[in-house]
Structure formats: structure tokens, C-alpha cells
């Protein structure tokens, strides 16, 4: 069998001249400028928090964070070294990690398995079960707080990290299943059937076809879930015992006890903010368009 390949290779982008590219850029320029301004405005409070966390506590009463522009000498790492020595802050930071990582992983794992089943495995009553899951989306967390507190005391896990994790997983799953089921349902049926013809079991199809192709949805779900749990105050406040409380609760307590202990609050809040940012940047590379390109037709 001969092949006349070579002439019919499809390469990526169309090769355009520099002039054409400049024209394309400038026509989108106004929009870009607008977006840049919006982004900068949004960043001001974050930047202010960063600067504030780096200022000498003695100067807090003299004025706002913008003073550093005229008095750069106010900057110091003292606040950070203080809170890193503070046992309450570091242990609650670790608690946040201990809660967030399993709560995110479990939701992603269970959610994708359930999403796959709802999208691609035939079983009786499938669509009814899925409707129930969708219905669960609208139940507010607040309704469940008291019953779950009672349930936890029966189970004997009140106040533990596990109790907080379980609550987050339970309330993260409906959205996770909803999102992933709909994304997985968009994977062409032919791909599943081709894998089945190739000899794959349902499990293999899930791990070798659906998970890799579902990465964009799984990554965004992971980020969402991570942010929700990381930033959660209410659930932790209700369920976590003092020794198990995450950073959000500890920081909230600072305001209560000392009125305004900004030297702890500012660096603590910034620490709490920087981790989700890193997670977002790390997962961002999975947001790719056209994962399915070249698959069918």
C-alpha cells in the first residue's frame, strides 16, 4: 500500500505577515486596555494587603498602606517571622491544608466516577437519580448544619477534621457530578465504542479515555472546590473543635480578641490568599480548548 502523505499535512496556525498581526492587535487594543484597567482596580486591595503585611506595626496608626511610597523604610519581614513563630497560626494553616486537600481530592475522584456513570453507563433509573443530584444543588448549607451536628455526635466524630472534610465533600459533590457528567456526556460516543471494540472494560474507558479527555473540566472543578473549602469559615466554625480549626477561623478570632491586631491579620490573610493563587496558576495549563480536535471527522 502506498501513501501520498506530505502534501496533505495540516499544520497549526496560518502564517501571517507582521503587518497583519499588528492590525489584528490594535483593533483589539481598546478592549485590552479596558480589561487591563479593570484588572488593576481589582488588584488594588490585594496589593494593599501585601504592603500592609510588610509594614512595621508601629506605623499602622500613622496612616494607610500607601505611605510606603513616601516612606519605604517602613517595610519589614518582621510580621511574617512573628506569625510563623505563632503556634496557633501555623497549626491552623496546616489544618486548612489537611481539610482542603482531601476534601478536594475526594470530590474530584467521586465526582468524576459518578459523572462517568451518569453519562455513559446504562442502569435503571439513571436519569431520575441524576435529577435528584441536580435537585440537591439548590439545598443551602445552612439548612443542614443542625441535623449534621446531631448526626456527628451520634457517630462520635464531632469536632474532628474528618467531620469537616465529610461535610465539604457532601456539599461539593452535587455540583461536581453535575458539571462532570455534562462535560463527559460531550465526549463523542464513537470514542467509547472504539475503546470497547479495542477491548477496553468500563474501568479502562474511564481511566484511559474519559479522565484524560475530561481534564479541563476536572481541573476547573478542582480549583473551584479547592477555593470553596480553603476560604470556608462557616462550616469550620460550626464543626471544627478549637484544636482542629483552620486558618479562616483563627484569623476571624484575632479580630474578636484584640480589636485590630493587623500585624497578625494582614500577613495571615495574605498567606491564606497566596496558596489558592498558586493552585490556580498550577492548574491553569489544563484549561485548553479543542481537546477533542482530530478525534472525529
Amino acid at each position: 500500500m502506498t501513501a501520498t502523505a506530505g502534501s496533505d499535512i495540516v499544520t497549526g496556525a496560518i502564517n501571517r505577515g507582521p503587518a497583519a498581526r499588528i492590525v489584528a492587535r490594535t483593533s483589539a487594543g481598546a478592549l485590552r486596555l479596558f480589561l487591563l484597567v479593570v484588572a488593576l482596580i481589582w488588584l488594588v486591595p490585594t496589593f494593599g494587603l501585601l504592603v500592609e503585611s510588610l509594614r512595621d506595626p508601629a506605623t499602622f496608626t500613622t496612616g494607610g498602606w500607601w505611605q510606603v511610597f513616601t516612606h519605604p523604610a517602613q517595610l519589614t519581614f518582621e510580621n511574617y517571622s512573628q506569625i510563623l513563630k505563632d503556634g496557633a497560626i501555623t497549626s491552623s494553616f496546616l489544618n486548612t491544608v489537611y481539610i482542603t486537600v482531601p476534601a478536594t481530592l475526594l470530590v474530584v475522584l467521586i465526582g468524576s466516577a459518578a459523572g462517568f456513570a451518569f453519562a455513559w453507563i446504562e442502569f435503571p433509573g439513571r436519569d431520575w437519580y441524576f435529577l435528584v443530584v441536580v435537585g440537591l444543588l439548590v439545598i443551602p448549607i445552612q439548612i443542614a448544619l443542625i441535623p449534621v451536628v446531631k448526626l456527628y455526635s451520634i457517630l462520635g466524630i464531632s469536632g474532628s477534621l474528618v467531620s469537616v472534610i465529610l461535610f465539604h465533600v457532601a456539599f461539593g459533590l452535587p455540583f461536581a457530578i453535575f458539571l462532570l457528567r455534562n462535560y463527559f456526556a460531550g465526549i463523542p460516543r464513537d470514542l467509547m465504542e472504539a475503546a470497547r471494540m479495542d477491548g477496553a472494560s468500563e474501568g479502562r474507558i474511564f481511566f484511559r479515555i474519559v479522565l484524560p479527555l475530561g481534564l479541563p473540566a476536572i481541573a476547573s472543578l478542582g480549583i473551584f472546590q479547592f477555593l470553596w473549602v480553603w476560604n470556608d469559615l462557616l462550616v469550620a466554625l460550626v464543626f471544627a473543635s478549637p484544636s482542629n480549626q483552620p486558618l479562616t477561623v483563627t484569623l476571624a478570632n484575632q479580630t474578636r480578641q484584640f480589636g485590630s491586631s493587623i500585624d497578625i491579620l494582614a500577613p495571615g490573610a495574605f498567606l491564606s490568599l497566596i496558596v489558592p493563587l498558586i493552585v490556580f496558576l498550577a492548574f491553569q495549563r489544563f484549561f485548553v480548548q479543542g481537546v477533542m480536535a482530530g478525534s472525529v471527522k
Partner: peptide
């Protein structure tokens, strides 16, 4: 048995 699909159904990843 092996099947060739109308859409080819190649694994894109």
C-alpha cells in the same frame, strides 16, 4: 472483531 468508524473515532489525547 475490529471496527473502523465513520468518524474514525481516534483517541485525541
Amino acid at each position: 472483531v475490529a471496527m473502523v468508524f465513520q468518524s474514525y473515532a481516534l483517541y485525541p489525547h
